[in-house]
Nucleic acid binder design. Structure first.
Length: 448
RNA sequence: GCGAUCGUAGCUCAGUUGGUUAGAGCGCCGGUUUGUGGUACCGGAGGUCGGGGGUUCGAGACCCCUCGAUCGCCCCA
């Protein structure tokens, strides 16, 4: 922190310890669940030609107009560090002829970069998990995609978060609605907030979720999208909502949810913490945890043939803030050489244990007291102690750190004891898990 | 990009209206019969008080600039 130590770039983070465990937990859960829904893994470049993003996302959006990390490479070409996944995946779909795999379900995760003012839950380099279904126009596609999002959030143990759902209709519906909104707000332009007066030109849909009371006054009476929806668009939305009900995904209608990027059509959604919930408190002023929608127009704006698609992305950091502390796994077996003479034997024993799939660590710093204390602190089930006597006899001291009981064993016997201890521990874990489940069920009964 | 608050040992913080060698807890290292743990006790290392400049006889405390974090706006994951 002091002196001449180099500082990290603003808005970047060095994630470590419990935070890193929570981060990994999110990624692991995502990887596990995405396989249940049979999304295929893809790896994408972290940068693209600038036009990939500017054409896909829209020149006038904040992301493109002021948040991109763009630079010229040595060949004079304008490149941009990815601010999102969707545009790059769409580009890959076109350049690699992935039409042959349509409907294509893909998933990925990794870092994104946006030049923004950092805050809690908001960074210049942040990380997302991302899922897309390309080449499928059916509303069931949206349902499956959302069901997966819902399951990931549930399996992470996150509560107090609800799916907010809206439809923007097809291109014509959206245009007609937009025109009506502009007309509605232009009539009262002078009474709107300064921001919304600007939005009127750039992004009128955004006025709908303004928090300014001056704007809110006119939002209630603003024209509703439902009035402009074509019959097809209505039927599409109805199919999505009834599909979500069938899948058991809870949702609420959010008529003013519009999403910032130009490419959205039909379904638009965000998972948002309920007001006043614990989750909302943990996120600071950030609200959206996961967001996305249908982007049927995107492929065309990149020069491809019209291709329907839906997708979402979720902030790993934001999800990690909600999963609670994840402790690092304790070590199973501590290997303790008593003095330098035990060092080599300790290495042999530790390797043998690791080859048998036990986590093992050698504790060889400080005196005997410190070594055992450290082993204990690391959560070891048992310590294997190796001194001169043991090297002479070819046996080991095996100390159970729970009971303190210690015995002289061969390596094979020690390994066998380790298996028993692991089994005991797992059974115990299972029991306590069952107890908490039972308590939860009982308290549910009390409430009703 | 705009507005506000904050920045003291690895971590969490205390430092009276500016006054002498900047403190605590935890952590770390060593020790309390040199082959044995989670407790207790003793000792030690570690800070030019985010950085730079200024006011003053004197600044961690006051002023300016800068960097960073946090909060609100904008926007978003």
């Amino acid at each position: 922190m002091s002196k001449n130590n180099p500082q990290a770039i603003r808005g970047t983070q060095d994630i470590f310890g419990a935070d890193a465990e929570a981060f990994a937990c999110v990624v692991e859960t995502f990887e596990r669940v995405r396989k249940l829904y049979r999304f295929r893994r893809v790896e994408m470049p972290v940068f693209e030609k600038t036009e990939v993003f500017s054409r896909a996302i829209g020149e006038t959006t904040d992301v493109v107009s002021k948040e991109m990390y763009s630079f010229e490479d040595r060949g004079g070409e304008s490149l941009t560090l990815r601010p999102e996944f969707t545009a790059g995946i769409a580009r890959a779909y076109l350049t690699n002829g992935w039409q042959q795999h349509a409907p294509l379900k893909v998933a990925t995760h990794g870092p994104l970069l946006r030049y923004e003012r950092p805050q809690k839950g908001r960074y210049r380099q942040f990380h997302q998990i991302d899922a897309e279904i390309i080449g499928a126009a059916e509303p069931q596609t949206d349902v499956e995609l959302l069901a997966m999002a819902d399951q990931i959030i549930r399996e992470l143990g996150i509560t107090g978060v609800t799916l907010h759902l809206n439809t923007l209709g097809d291109a014509d519906s959206r245009e007609a609605w937009r025109a009506a909104l502009v007309e509605h707000f232009r009539a009262v332009k002078d009474e709107l907030s300064k921001e919304s007066q600007e939005r009127l030109e750039k992004n009128p849909l955004r006025i709908l979720d303004s928090k300014d009371p001056r704007d809110r006054k006119f939002v209630g009476t603003a024209p509703k999208i439902d009035f402009f929806l074509s019959d097809e668009a209505k039927a599409f939305f109805k199919a999505v909502t009834s599909g979500l009900d069938a899948a058991g995904v809870e949702w609420v209608r959010a008529e003013s949810l519009v999403r910032g990027l130009d490419y959205y059509r039909h379904t638009a959604f965000e998972f948002i913490p309920d007001e006043g919930s614990e989750a909302a408190g943990k996120l600071g002023s950030q609200s959206t945890i996961l967001g996305g929608g249908r982007y049927d127009g995107l492929m065309e704006s990149l020069g491809g043939t019209p291709t329907p698609a839906v997708g979402w992305a979720a902030g790993i950091e934001r999800l990690a803030m909600l999963v609670g502390d994840k402790a690092e796994e304790p070590v199973e077996i501590a290997v303790i050489p008593i003095s330098e003479v035990g060092n080599l034997r300790a290495i042999e024993v530790a390797q043998d244990l690791r080859n048998s799939r036990f986590s093992a660590e050698i504790f060889a710093r400080g005196n005997m007291k410190k070594r055992l204390a450290r082993a204990d602190q690391a959560g070891a089930m048992a310590a294997i102690i190796i001194g001169e006597d043991e090297i002479a006899s070819g046996q080991l001291q095996f100390k159970h750190l729970g009971t303190g009981e210690q015995s002289t064993l061969t390596l094979d016997e020690a390994s066998e004891r380790a298996w028993e201890l692991r089994l005991d521990r797992d059974v115990e874990k299972f029991d306590s898990h069952m107890d908490t489940l039972e308590d939860a069920v009982n308290s549910l009964g009390d409430e009703d």
